[in-house]
Simulated scan of single mutants.
Amino acid sequence: MSEITIRTLGTDEWETYREVRLNALEESPEAFAASATQEKNYDEDFWRARVERSRRLVAEDGESIVGVVSVGDRSTEENRVGELFGLWVTPRLRGQGVAWKLVQAGVDQAQQEAYKFLIYWVGTDNGRAVAFASSFGFRPTDSRRPMKGASEETQDEDEMAMVYPLGDDPAAVPSSVLDQRHS
């Protein structure tokens, strides 16, 4: 493995985002609410709008994109809140620090955009993801929601909000940050 670099896609790189997103959906369908079949049919305008509404960060190994994560805005009137979502790393590089670099870049992006908190929804039954997020510094909360895009196999599963405080007081997480209307 060469040096992994992380960069934010520009709004004109919608085709690059489309390619990595479809790769992620095809390789790890159980990890996402959408399916590759659904998203393959979306047109250029859809993909352009998607790239413009959230920051899309990609991990590159030389010329190859090997991972992706997104940072979106879930702010309320009271708080600037970001949401980390869509984390995926190609299987051959899992467990080698790529996800860590992507999440760190997402945290850095959220801090640059003056968010006070970063929320990451994780499946309560996904022990590996919960352990990863916890080791990074995300804290579990009592906030739960049904798994997005649940199939018959996952219809009874929940996701929990994990929070990463970005402000001066890491203990201060107001309940409005976890308001379900912003999930």
Rank of each mutant, 00 (worst) to 15 (best):
L25V: 07
H182Y: 15
L25N: 01
V66N: 05
A24L: 00
W14G: 06
V68Q: 03
A150Y: 00
T11W: 06
Y42D: 00
M1Q: 00
D45T: 12
L9M: 10
V89I: 04
Q38V: 03
S2M: 10
Y17C: 09
Q112M: 07
W100M: 14
S64I: 01
Q155L: 11
R145Q: 15
F117W: 15
A33V: 05
D61Q: 08
R21M: 04
D142F: 03
W47I: 13
L22D: 09
T5H: 07
K148W: 03
A105P: 05
P140I: 00
S35V: 02
E27M: 09
Q38G: 08
Q96A: 08
L87K: 01
E152K: 15
M160D: 00
E153M: 10
G137E: 08
V69N: 02
Q155A: 07
A36N: 08
P146H: 05
A31R: 09
P170V: 07
G137C: 06
E15I: 03
T8K: 14
I65H: 04
A114M: 04
T124V: 13
V177R: 00
L22S: 06
S134P: 04
A99P: 07
E152G: 14
V122I: 11
D158H: 12
I4L: 09
Q96P: 00
G127T: 14
S175M: 11
D12F: 09
L93C: 00
Q155D: 12
R21I: 05
I119F: 01
T5V: 15
E39W: 08
F138W: 10
V130E: 10
S134T: 14
P91A: 09
T90P: 02
N126L: 04
A105I: 06
G95I: 06
I65P: 02
A171F: 03
E3A: 10
Q104H: 13
F46L: 01
Y17F: 14
R48Y: 05
S54A: 15
M162L: 12
R145F: 09
L9F: 09
N79F: 12
R181I: 09
L87S: 00
L166Y: 10
R7T: 15
V66F: 09
G62N: 05
Y164L: 15
S28D: 15
S70R: 08
A49S: 14
M160G: 10
R181L: 12
G72D: 04
G67L: 11
D156P: 02
R92C: 04
T141Y: 03
D169A: 11
W121D: 02
D179I: 08
G72E: 02
E63K: 13
E157C: 10
G127Q: 13
Q109C: 15
Q104M: 15
A161W: 02
N23Y: 10
D168M: 13
T141Q: 01
E13F: 09
L9V: 01
S2L: 08
T16F: 07
A49T: 08
A114Y: 06
V130A: 13
E63F: 06
